[in-house]
Nucleic acid binder design. Structure first.
Lengths: 107, 107
DNA sequence: GCGGTCGTTCACATCTTCTTCACCGCGCGT
DNA sequence: ACGCGCGGTGAAGAAGATGTGAACGACCGC
């Protein structure tokens, strides 16, 4: 997936360290499960762009998203909840109905 | 990070990304439904030229426009509304009575 | 075994979208 | 003035997409 050296992704007040499995929200560490983290990284790799569920599933789960599988939606929800609780003023994950999701620090 | 955004169409302050289903108006993301987006793309493929409803329907819906079907008009209206709200100073979609619609960034 | 977390799946709630209908005003020809 | 074709616009209903809480089993460390 990524480099082995100190990559650091910044998105608004979010700081993601893919190789460490660590996310800092405004400096405070977020507790994410593996799936949640992988999903966030998948989104983060395309900041500002719309990413389809298929693509997200491929990157965070591996393999192909089966028709009717809602795992992706469920985890988007879990992620949203945690991000929102950490940074209530932001809305990071935007839904584009029929297309997918977009990570963006701006409203 | 991935950088190949694929195709990217620019029309005035509009930036259309066909592969993503994303439109940026002056940098800000627009929220369009699938139909709205497809219609915009169909118009954008012929910027500055008049496109008939039949052609628009073929490209955005697929199949042939049935006599009496107003879907196209309705969605032109929805698109106009959203574009206008995003960029109030512009008038992108122009009606050519009896012929069709024309997308043009100029007033 | 016990108590935790985690990932998946289900069921239901809610929100969007799409289509279609109705009605409006406008311009045109008679 | 009248009727007619055309496009603009709002709204209703059904279909579809997404949000959300809960149940379940797998797994793991103790």
């Amino acid at each position: 997936m990524q480099t082995s050296h100190g990559e650091l992704v910044r998105i608004g007040d979010l700081e993601i360290r893919p190789q460490e499995g660590l996310v800092l929200a405004d400096g405070r560490a977020l507790v994410l499960s593996v799936r949640e983290f992988d999903l966030l990284v998948a989104l983060a790799r395309h900041v500002g762009r719309v990413v389809s569920r298929e693509e997200l599933y491929r990157q965070a789960w591996g393999g192909t998203l089966r028709r009717g599988d809602r795992s992706c939606d469920v985890y988007i929800h879990k992620l949203r909840t945690k991000l929102e609780r950490a940074l209530p003023q932001h809305h990071f994950i935007h839904t584009h109905v029929g297309f997918g999701y977009r990570l963006d620090p701006a409203p």
